[in-house]
Design a protein around this nucleic acid. Structure first.
Lengths: 105, 105
DNA sequence: GCTTACGGTTAGTCATGGCTTACCAAGATG
DNA sequence: CATCTTGGTAAGCCATGACTAACCGTAAGC
């Protein structure tokens, strides 16, 4: 949902590896698990986290479930990062001008 | 250093709160800790992580140490996120065309 | 000089979360 | 229908990491 969930989801190395493996396109759970050094249930749990973070979505096709990257999740994360630019640059300018005023720090 | 460290550093809610509190400009450790519901050593440890992730840098001024946001750390993180766009869009196009070819999935 | 403020480090505790094993439901295949 | 494949879920184990208390070094201020 929010950017917090996206960051939390991508903070785990294995989850990041799974997410990055989807760069190549949609994959089934078994296909993803084949390239990972952990069990299939572990992959399934990671995918659940990625999905509820809005980073992937699923397309059922028979018993197979294809996961793929969802760009919207990455967009919210990018907005969060971008939001620091203007804020901090303004703040830094203020800090320089108020440098001599000796406020409570 | 790398984007991995930045993501890991920002995955912790408290560390994110500390980092976001620096939007307003450089602050001393005591000043940061004043707004956080944890002890000063805890804040110190978080700042250490943020620093080694390249997200903040320090300016000593007497016994006080002013921490501020370092934009370069955010830049590497943004590049990582951006790197998914072209890759996944290409991959999706391929997947659509190869849809009937029934590859091993 | 002595004392106080600032802040980094260490040791030890406790909660979070990633993993495996076992289990179960549902669609595919004969 | 019986069997196999696919994959989600639960219980339990264990490592990681966030936190506090206690300590230490260093620069200010009297």
């Amino acid at each position: 949902m929010a950017y917090q969930d996206a960051i939390t989801a991508l903070s785990d190395p294995r989850r990041r590896a799974i997410f990055e493996s989807l760069r190549a396109g949609p994959k089934s759970v078994a296909h993803i698990a084949r390239d990972q050094p952990v069990s299939r249930p572990a992959v399934s749990q990671h995918l659940k986290v990625l999905q509820s973070a809005g980073l992937v979505d699923v397309t059922a096709q028979g018993t197979k479930r294809f996961y793929q990257i969802r760009h919207q999740g990455l967009t919210t994360l990018r907005h969060y990062i971008d939001s620091f630019w203007q804020d901090t640059l303004d703040a830094f300018a203020n800090h320089v001008t108020e440098n001599q005023t000796k406020k409570e720090n």
